[in-house]
Computed example of a mutant assay.
Amino acid sequence: MNRSNDRRKLLAAASAAVAAALAAPAMPAFAARARPLLEVWKSPTCGCCGAWIEHMQAAGFDVRIHDVGNAAARAKAGLPAKFGSCHTALVDGYVVEGHVPAEDVMRLLAQRPAALGLAVPGMPIGSPGMEQGDQRDPYDVLLVSREGGASVWRAYR
């Protein structure tokens, strides 16, 4: 048995691994995390909030639930009450209020606009978590600015 040869092979393999890691491009914090963490404040008895959480988990989000209601969380995040819904979430520095589709949240995280977050005010039928068979209400996902204004991020008709 040649211990010197074994050590050289081991050192060569370790050096190659370190060199590969150093040569890899730096990944943004979001990309380094396999599944983004979504913190949700909701009522402990709200079924539609639970259905929306399942929608988000199916889309690849990890979820931490706070069953204490959402009014205080919404206010602390700085989201005006006029954009309110039944649950408030935080993800990677953004507020997500109400039944926002996962696809829109993923787009928000990818594009990273200078904004407070997204909101679907109220509880429109047909939005994620508010499914009622084939019934669908038209609704808008709003991009809410840090100053309290909003623009349409995506319209669902």
Rank of each mutant, 00 (worst) to 15 (best):
E131T: 11
V152A: 04
Q57M: 06
K9H: 11
V18Q: 06
A21S: 15
T88L: 09
R146L: 14
A72G: 10
A71T: 13
E147P: 12
K42L: 00
N70C: 14
E97A: 04
A89P: 06
Q132E: 13
D62K: 02
M123Q: 04
A77L: 12
D6E: 15
D67V: 04
M130W: 00
A12E: 11
L10R: 13
G50E: 12
S127I: 03
L90K: 10
Y156Q: 00
D134C: 04
V141N: 02
D92F: 12
R7W: 10
V63S: 05
L116G: 10
D134E: 14
P113S: 07
V100A: 03
V105P: 14
V18N: 00
V91I: 12
H66I: 03
L118P: 09
K82T: 11
F30Y: 12
F30C: 12
P121A: 08
A81T: 14
Y94R: 06
L142G: 12
A17S: 13
E131A: 11
G93E: 13
R107W: 07
E103D: 15
Y156W: 03
A114T: 11
L90Q: 14
R112W: 05
C49D: 02
A89N: 00
G78N: 10
R35Y: 08
K9G: 11
T45Y: 10
A75N: 10
P124I: 02
S151Y: 06
A34H: 04
L11N: 15
D62P: 04
F30E: 13
N70E: 14
Y139D: 02
G93V: 04
V120Q: 00
L37M: 05
F61G: 08
E97N: 08
A34D: 07
V18Y: 05
S4A: 13
Q57I: 02
A32G: 15
V152G: 13
A34E: 14
S4N: 13
A26H: 07
R8S: 11
A13K: 00
S85D: 03
V141H: 05
D104C: 15
A59L: 06
H87W: 05
N70S: 15
R154T: 11
G78R: 05
A19H: 09
P36G: 02
W153I: 01
A21L: 10
P44G: 05
S127R: 01
W52R: 00
W41K: 03
L116T: 09
S4I: 10
P80C: 00
P113W: 08
L118A: 12
N5R: 13
R107M: 10
L79K: 04
E97F: 09
S145C: 07
E97P: 13
R157V: 04
A31T: 12
V144C: 11
F61P: 15
C46M: 04
A114M: 10
Y139L: 01
L22Y: 09
R33E: 15
A81P: 10
V91S: 13
G69S: 00
P138L: 05
M27A: 15
A31F: 02
A119C: 13
Y156S: 02
D134P: 05
G126I: 03
P138N: 07
A59N: 03
A17D: 02
L79P: 00
L116F: 12
I53W: 06
R154F: 07
K42H: 07
R7K: 14
P36W: 01
G133M: 07
S145E: 06
A29N: 08
A72Y: 06
H55I: 05
V63D: 07
L79E: 02
A26R: 03
W153S: 05
G47T: 09
I53V: 15
V141D: 01
V95H: 09
P113R: 03
L22R: 12
